[in-house]
Design a protein around this nucleic acid. Structure first.
Lengths: 196, 196
DNA sequence: AAATTGTGTTAAACTAGTTTAACTTTTCGT
DNA sequence: ACGAAAAGTTAAACTAGTTTAACACAATTT
């Protein structure tokens, strides 16, 4: 892939595991640049997730539809974040999640067919992925803790504080879905906060 | 550490990444065997978590105390599972969680001071930890999904089905805490299930 | 400029799960 | 075997968050 486009990814990787020029160009030969339009799906529930995606620009939501047709947003991904259904990717089984673009989005895609080659040829990247998945796991556990111990209002305030950029870029009903509450209740919370 | 005691760990690792005899004995020189009694703490909230622990026998609970002094159980660990506060371990910051033994428990402990040496000397183990953390992350995400979309009764039935061994070994109020509901409500759910 | 679609608000009726409190049963140390 | 402590049950009053439904206000499309 085009080395210029890949710079934000290389910068991100180099923060965790410094790569040589040779390793960088080896990596570039195994990954793919791709552009999606707002509304397009990167992964659809039931499909096999064939890529782990690093977001260069734009914004995606990862969500699933429950049996009643209700959408539940699991995460948003913006610049320098990852987007994939990891359960589907690592075991090549049908995806639980949809990943859809909320803006025009540019991605670097790590294909499943080349990921083992990448690990074998550039062992530092096996370390890199261990490090970022460790952090993702810790973040996921902390989210479970918040679900248990915070009220909806507290969770909303936490979201605002942690992801102020994201709140600006997405409609409020998606924030509600991410927090696991109804849009009506989030509206109520916001009007309470506006007064007090 | 004593190779005989370590066999369940080696079997577990070999399922993911087959090790040579040399690699096995190198690993054994870096890890520690330890026994804890029922009630003892392996990690205390606020301390630095210095070990990642593999459970050889026994059972632990990982939990935290909220501001109101309420205990919230995050996970149980039995034979062939891991127990640690990964957030604390990987960045050597104060632990969010307590880990306490619910039975007399035997562990293999991977010390923070030797973990980088282990990765450097036995690169397969960097792969091994990547693989198990990937799975842990996927499991954690699935738990978030269940929290969002299942009722308390459904979550209880899921727990029973997934971890029938654990339910036999721990008091019911701890199951309630793990599910994020009160013991009184779990009691009600069970009596409903006993009828219908 | 009108019409449609997507997004946000308000309020009343409702429900899943909590709180409190009194009670029963089981487990455990001596 | 006994008493104390830990674990589990029941039920009534309560509350955080849902549902439904009607309305308001953009933003796009025609």
């Amino acid at each position: 892939m085009n080395p210029e486009k890949a710079q934000p990814l290389l910068d991100y990787i180099n923060k965790h595991v410094p790569l040589t020029k040779e390793e960088e160009s080896a990596l570039l030969s195994y990954i793919i640049f791709r552009r999606y339009l707002k509304g397009q799906y990167i992964v659809q529930q039931g499909d096999i997730c064939k890529y782990e995606c690093f977001v260069l620009s734009g914004c995606t939501k990862t969500f699933y539809m429950d049996d009643e047709g209700q959408e539940h947003i699991i995460m948003f991904s913006i610049e320098d974040w990852w987007a994939s259904d990891m359960g589907s990717f690592i075991s090549q089984t049908p995806a639980d999640f949809n990943i859809q673009c909320l803006e025009d989005t540019e991605l670097v895609m790590f294909p499943y067919e080349t990921i083992e080659t990448i690990y074998a040829e550039i062992p530092k990247l096996e370390r890199f992925f261990r490090l970022i998945i460790e952090r993702a796991f810790v973040a996921s556990q902390k989210r479970i803790v918040r679900n248990f111990s915070l009220t909806a209002k507290e969770q909303y305030l936490y979201f605002k504080e942690q992801y102020p950029e994201i709140e600006q870029r997405i409609p409020q009903y998606m924030v509600a879905s991410y927090l696991g509450i109804t849009k009506e209740f989030l509206s109520k919370i916001k009007s309470q906060l506006a007064l007090g």
